[in-house]
């Protein structure tokens, strides 16, 4: 190649590289995913629903005194941290419009978060405890296994076309110790009727 042709060759090479950016459909396989990570920048990317959830009126409640109040963020209505003997747990309260896909889908998502397998509808019915929260009969679930370090106790409360989720999640021993305090918290919940 003569030196004078070098620039032309370089230009062609770079132009070819420019053409490599076209986007196409791709396929790939991944090990089965049950729980998924929080999307970065979450507070900024859901303006519509953040606005909606901020519209829900927070009920009256009485959290346990040893629960440490945290900033709930844009999507939650309440958040408390519990720490004892180097163990940690978190209580959250969140509200969403509708039934957010149904109880089974939500429970399976929680099971995924603590590394447990999904269950079917009959199993959900068997595992559900039913408690009264502000006069309504609501589903309460205690999810844990001897093989996983994390546990969840959660209540699902339908209220005026929306669904409230009250969840205690953390290290299994601490979560089980906190069950009584969490149930007392659920007992204290009272919605102001609009």
């Amino acid at each position: 190649m003569t030196p004078s042709k070098l620039p032309i060759f370089g230009l062609c090479l770079l132009l070819v590289l420019c053409g490599c950016k076209q986007e196409t459909i791709t396929t790939y396989s991944i090990p089965k995913e049950e729980s998924k990570a929080t999307a970065p920048g979450t507070p900024q990317m859901m303006p519509g629903l953040a606005q909606q959830t901020s519209g829900f009126t927070t009920p009256n409640w009485q959290p346990a005194r040893h629960w440490e109040t945290q900033d709930p963020g844009p999507m939650r209505k309440g958040r408390w941290n519990i720490a004892r003997d180097n163990q940690k747990a978190e209580v959250t309260a969140a509200a969403f419009p509708g039934d957010v896909g149904g109880d089974l889908a939500n429970v399976n998502r929680w099971l995924g978060q603590i590394g447990l397998s999904s269950i079917d509808a009959p199993t959900l019915e068997k595992q559900s405890l039913w408690v009264a929260i502000d006069g309504k009969t609501c589903r309460l679930l205690i999810l844990y296994s001897d093989d996983t370090p994390q546990a969840i106790i959660a209540a699902i409360v339908p209220h005026q076309g929306s669904t409230w989720f009250f969840k205690l999640m953390g290290e299994t021993a601490l979560v089980l110790q906190e069950e009584a305090a969490f149930r007392a918290f659920l007992d204290s919940i009272h919605f102001d009727e609009a």
């Binding site: 986007e23 196409t24 459909i25 791709t26 396929t27 790939y28 396989s29 991944i30 090990p31 089965k32």
Partner: peptide, 17 residues
């Protein structure tokens, strides 16, 4: 495709399409 018990088969379509 979630039907396999161990693997998920993902087809990704860029939003430019």
């Amino acid at each position: 495709d979630k039907s396999d018990p161990y693997m998920d088969y993902v087809t990704s379509i860029p939003t430019s399409l």
